[in-house]
Design a protein around this nucleic acid. Sequence first.
DNA 1: GCCGTTTTCGGCCCGACTGTTTTCAGTCG
Length: 572
Amino acid sequence: MALALPSNDALAVQLELLADLSEILGEDGFRIRAYRTAAARVRETAISVAQLALQGQAKELPGIGRTIEAKIVEAAEQGEIAALAKRRAEVPAEVASFLQLPGVGPRTAARIWRELGVTTTAELRAAAEQGRLRELSGLGATSEAKILAALADRPVGTTPARGLLGRGLPVVREVVAALAAHPAAVRVSEAGSIRRRRETFRDLDVIATATDAAALIAFFVELPGVLQVVAHGDTKATVVTQQGLRLDLRVVPPDCFGSLLQHFTGSKEHNIALREEAVRRGLSVSEYGVAVAESGETRTFETEEELYAFLGYAFIPPELRENAGELEAARGGTLPALVEAGDLRGELHCHSTWSADGKDGIEDMARAARRNGYRFLVVTDHSHYLRDGRLHAQWEEIAEVDRRLRPFRVLRGIEANIKADGSLDVPDDDLAELDWVVASLHTSFDRSPTERVLAAIESPHVDCIGHLTGRRLSRPARAAGAPVDVERVVAAAAATGTALEINAQPDRLDLRDVHARLAGEAGVLVPVTTDAHSVAALAYAELGVAQARRAWLTRDQVLNTRTWAQIARLRR
DNA sequence: GCCGTTTTCGGCCCGACTGTTTTCAGTCG
């Protein structure tokens, strides 16, 4: 029986484990780095890399050459990379998980295993408790205590939960505003992954310049909502808030604020690629400035714009800094003009009290949308709450509110369920009378999700597919979403003129960034929708726009930057 | 292992922190 092709995530896991085991075995560091770079590339590729490798095209991806492509073919054909199988036979299974412990890198993990004969987490705990780790030079009582604390904190092998962008963004903004209002503050900015608007974060980074660094840091660690001060030094501090969010503040010299902001915004991959290209041109880039090898002088930059310009790039918006082609585009002057929050003209997916889980009525939702500066609102209540004549009753209310709020438009939509057999749970006669039809998977995610979505796309009544994979970022079991073949869905959507939404719910952000980019490149129009179940949730549009920007989308590629009249003309 | 406007060979980002090293290796971001 043919094996299902490994997903990109599964391939990346194999390459990362190969890197970890090779490192524990003391192999060449540059080859290990190549495995890790390739793993990151595979994870951030929108289409199946296993499929590409079988076609001999994976080596066209940056960071993947003939050798790693051959390894991916092995994974696709035999289930596992042969070099990985070989190393797994050499290194006891749990030793690689030692790497997750604080202060334990490959050298230390290898010595714990080889010199102490410790091969499992249980043995490691026992060894630490008995004070045997300090027998190794370089390890002392402090290291033992840290390892024991980490073992007690959470089981090895599990990863710590990441916070959602939608939760972190308001917090980091509050902190930036509070710090900026302090008399010692000069410049204050968000940084890190939250500034790049990544869908999840590990910690929230803020950097600042100040006339009195100590005063600003002292103010920071005493902000309301701070539960615990983890670190408090001369130039930086780390606190944990009552909601359990980790916040970092760094106070930096003003003359290199631009370099430091760029450095701490990342991503790591973007910065490494930027620095490697600079090295080839005789420049050494660090967080403090750019050293010119020829003259020996170091240039400093107060703004990111000046730094990028000095290195020969157009300014790169933080959302694009993932080493996904942005450096080449910025050098060649071909960066896209990204969609902005103010470009949205209306809402194409939201709910009212006609849905049992809706909090606000149609008129309240419409008035709130109008206050946002929108010009239309499509009400897409759940189909299963609109049976037994309720659908027509809802249409009457929509028509009434529409008349009352003109020229603002309120339109008849629906969110229909894609059933297990791929059909919709709304009769065609009703669908034909709707202004806008969203079709979504809500159940049986593991039952042929691709075929069901493709069937919905083929329906002449379906305008848009809702939250394509059904992923829920805060639920580990569902964070990956249904195993939808996005490449096929995008092709079908492009062929039929069906839209694929970016659902801006903080827990969804579905399409994910690389898939929305794939859709945009294929010519699919991508609406940014909130799926709001309340007036307040209409504000999630900002998160969806951020996701669209991470997907390189321009205003024209985002469907609801158009008026309703323009959208209606685009319908089939 | 990857890669190329110095190079198909010989490079490969850069700096801070930490613990126990008495001069820096290992780890981390």
